[in-house]
Design a protein around this nucleic acid. Structure first.
Lengths: 257, 257
DNA sequence: CCAGTCTGTTCCAAAATAAGGAACCATGTT
DNA sequence: AACATGGTTCCTTATTTTGGAACAGACTGG
């Protein structure tokens, strides 16, 4: 275990759910001995990767993370194009859109595009969740081989919401269906009461991949509205996919098969 | 030099001006030998602190920085209060507002509040610059002792725009004036053609400090407009300052002296 | 084809750092 | 005083990190 690895183990303890942690919490979460924890926290603080509240003594991400995080794909061409197109989709449908990337078998929301619908799904940028339980997450997984997918799965298979896949085999079945149509849907999964449709985009040149989704209330969205969303997403996928050379969307569906 | 220190040296090479860097550029910027550079970049990539474009081979901040950066003071009470108040100031004055923190003798913009004025100053969140050359930067420095300020200055004193302080003595003189009034101004400094007014806020309990500023076109903003901005900022400083127990703004000016 | 350049990677022994347990410290509570 | 919590420092051992050298791959020009 390298010093950098230890540092990153600590950094990974912080999340939306736990943006601040105490000495003891970090020690428990990492399993590091007291002295190692103390030294490493001091080093991280001095490096500005963490900072410490003077009163509560709790640690939180530091200024350097803010600075670097701001730079993360700030001028990414694929994300820029997708975001522009998604804004139009969300303007027309009224629903909330998301752009995410895959990390292991998690997905991380990079961009959120608000819709105008009064019933609002809010899952802010920076939100991490299982890719297995979301439409765009599964769409991204569908771009990998079955072997690659299986290699990413944690053991044991994670406990997921009731409508999500509950085994590797079930996941692969879902993924096969997504590969056939290019589109992916979820209903009452990652967030109860919320449904979504999504697809993946992959830049042929760079291998960069993102997942795009539009979320809406499961109960309040009738089938014809869902069909509308599906058409909008397909049109968007084709428009952006043709520019970036996406293997699925960059040409006609017939030729892709 | 620790491994973490080396890693951070590399991370600090990235900036708004240089969001992506090649192997050779990182090597040159850090002075690290080739083999050290190669190993450390690999470790940073595996840790998701950096990622690498597959085509250009250039490195850039990775997903973990995005994730942690999102958490940075996301729910900070002082910043939240200041941002709410600043939004009202900017709505009333039409100009752009900023909230920044001090890092060494630099300042880092954390929040930008757009104004409605058609002539727009844009200095996005994540922007780093010398605190010596900005109104709110100097206001934050004014909250430190002269000794503390001098300890933060790089040697030699940095080359700064023409209206900025050009020596430690000149800076201390400016700072003394800010300490007297609580307010700080700049004109044609960090950005040519741009003027700003600012002040600092310091949470008595936690020691947390931020600098607030409103920027506007130097040429297009007459004195009565500037006076209006000054009054707005003073009112904001008092309102927020009294809540957080700021030493300067948390009570009347007479009692503070 | 060969040589040179650029972008890296790997090897290896020495140097440096990091590690963990134990002792210690400071503060607060019973 | 004893105990609990949040740490810090010491010290010896183990592990990691280091940098120069050798190597590798891709590309360009003669």
């Amino acid at each position: 275990m390298s010093a950098l690895g230890t540092a990153v183990d600590i950094l990974r303890c912080f999340s939306e759910a736990r943006p601040e942690l105490s000495f003891a919490e970090i020690m428990a979460a990492t399993g590091l001995p007291k002295s190692s924890t103390s030294r490493m926290l001091r080093a991280l603080r001095e490096a500005r990767l963490l900072e410490q509240d003077e009163v509560t003594r709790r640690f939180r991400p530091g200024l350097l993370t803010f600075e670097l995080g701001r730079l993360y794909r700030a001028h990414d061409d694929l994300i820029g194009r997708a975001e522009t197109a998604l804004k139009e989709v969300c303007a027309r449908t009224g629903h909330t859109g998301y752009i995410a990337v895959l990390d292991g078998c998690d997905q991380m929301v990079l961009r959120m595009v608000p819709g105008s619908n009064p019933l609002r799904v809010v899952s802010p940028a920076g939100q991490r969740g299982s890719a297995i339980a979301t439409s765009n997450g599964r769409a991204m997984l569908a771009r990998l081989s079955d072997t690659e997918i299986l290699a990413r799965l944690p053991v044991p298979f994670p406990v997921l919401p009731r409508n999500s896949p509950h085994s590797p085999a079930e996941l692969l079945g879902r993924v096969a269906e997504i590969r056939r149509t290019g589109q992916s849907a979820s209903d009452n999964e990652a967030i109860e009461g919320v449904a979504s449709q999504g697809f993946a985009l992959c830049n042929r040149e760079t291998g960069e991949m993102i997942g795009v989704a539009v979320s809406y209330s499961s109960q309040a969205t009738p089938p014809e509205e869902r069909a509308h969303v599906a058409r909008e997403l397909e049109a968007m996928a084709r428009a952006v996919g043709s520019v970036i050379g996406d293997a699925v969307w960059g040409q006609s569906r017939e030729a892709a098969r």
